[in-house]
Design a protein around this nucleic acid. Sequence first.
DNA 1: CTTGACGTTATGTTCGGACATATCCTAAGC
DNA 2: GCTTAGGATATGTCCGAACATAACGTCAAG
Lengths: 253, 253
Amino acid sequence: MSEHNVKQNPAPAVRHAEVTRDLMEGIASGRFPVGSLLPTEFELCDLYGASRHTVRVAIGELAELGLVSRRKRAGTRVEARTPPGSYRQSLTSLEDLVQFGAAHVRVVQETGELAADPALAKALGCPAGSRWLKISSFRLNGRPGVPPVGWTDVYLDPAYTEVPALARASPATLISSLVEQRYGRQIAEVHQDVGAVALPGRLAEPLRAEAGSPALRVVRRYLDPAGEVFEISDTIHPAGRFTASSRLERGRA
Amino acid sequence: MSEHNVKQNPAPAVRHAEVTRDLMEGIASGRFPVGSLLPTEFELCDLYGASRHTVRVAIGELAELGLVSRRKRAGTRVEARTPPGSYRQSLTSLEDLVQFGAAHVRVVQETGELAADPALAKALGCPAGSRWLKISSFRLNGRPGVPPVGWTDVYLDPAYTEVPALARASPATLISSLVEQRYGRQIAEVHQDVGAVALPGRLAEPLRAEAGSPALRVVRRYLDPAGEVFEISDTIHPAGRFTASSRLERGRA
DNA sequence: CTTGACGTTATGTTCGGACATATCCTAAGC
DNA sequence: GCTTAGGATATGTCCGAACATAACGTCAAG
């Protein structure tokens, strides 16, 4: 592999993709802080040795991702550090929902007897007569053009002591099939553990409940295509009408 | 240049947008049938009197919408007649859901007494003690990358004779806010009429119910940004577990 | 008939330039 | 001080050109 060759095209790939990648890296690393202005297009031409057209295509991709916004004369401003629409987005946790308040989120819940629907009980593999708690969540916030996401979770046994694994094949649980729909079969098993906990203080205020009161804790783990583990933990609290909060964390496979 | 255009720029808007619009029109009207090849870029340059750059930007927008696909040498092929993600998509009717069967759709419903939640009754402007029927719907089908859409509708009075207009400001109804979220305030009032009907024969089989049995008919009308009226009519049938079907039609303003 | 090489062709990428447009900034006018 | 007018500037749009690349068609060789 001598560099001496004539028509050597090692890995220039597409020029504008290279510019895009470097800019994304710069934004993610904080070299271009959120809120600051990117160098002008002409400066970027100089920086990358590319034409303005190429630079504009690159910036256009960032704008499409919502990473930057462009305004005439004002310049190109960094809007976000990481692109939305990633794996994490479809796994939006309930805590994110709570952050946006009631104006953006509707959470409706009921309890009922599974005995009222024997077919459903059989499909879920649960004994008839069990009681269940249902939570429907919708995420309406998001950038223009991003449709809302909704799902419904059903937890059995309102005593909060045991919850069957409804992650797969349950007609009443959507979140796993939702993930599979978007990422195919690369998703590993979805695990769901449940236990009774005391409501943490940091959740007391947004949930309008008393810290320390009994709550339900649900933990799910997903394996994304890149081999990373995403863990969503929800804290569900029965305060008059049930409310919910949660947290999302990353880990390694 | 043949004509000496001085400054008569009345409403050319953006040039490439004009090309985009005409191409979309041609595709929607069938002038460019689905499956056929679009004229080559150079032919389109000739046709619209625009540069190749402009034509490419226009085609790029169509490609982004999924209307066409581009391959080197092969040309630009028409893939779909109407863009997904359009106004219609967010108004997906329940009938569409039924078409995909249980594997792709979950519809869960319950009935209950509004009296159990006085705050909700007050928010809905309904007398306490009313009964209600709830239907949660999720659409998981769709092209790759298009997140699922979910919403919840609540119909009052299971006698199926009167249903208050819950379209706006109802904390339990999502579809109107969903539409507003995507299309801003350009959406006109949403009308909702209800009446008792006999279950049509064509719906009897998919709903596993008997034709002619009593059902509820709900009609909503939306006005899209282009001034067109979309009408969604749902037929809701209480067969053990409530099931639903619907139809979506277009009309003029 | 199958396979391979190769020219043709339509899209993919990049360049340099020109003018339009919206906005910020400053200075003039009240 | 406040408002208004105008210059400066960064992005928006468009043009014409050149070369790269992938895929289709053809045709010759096996």
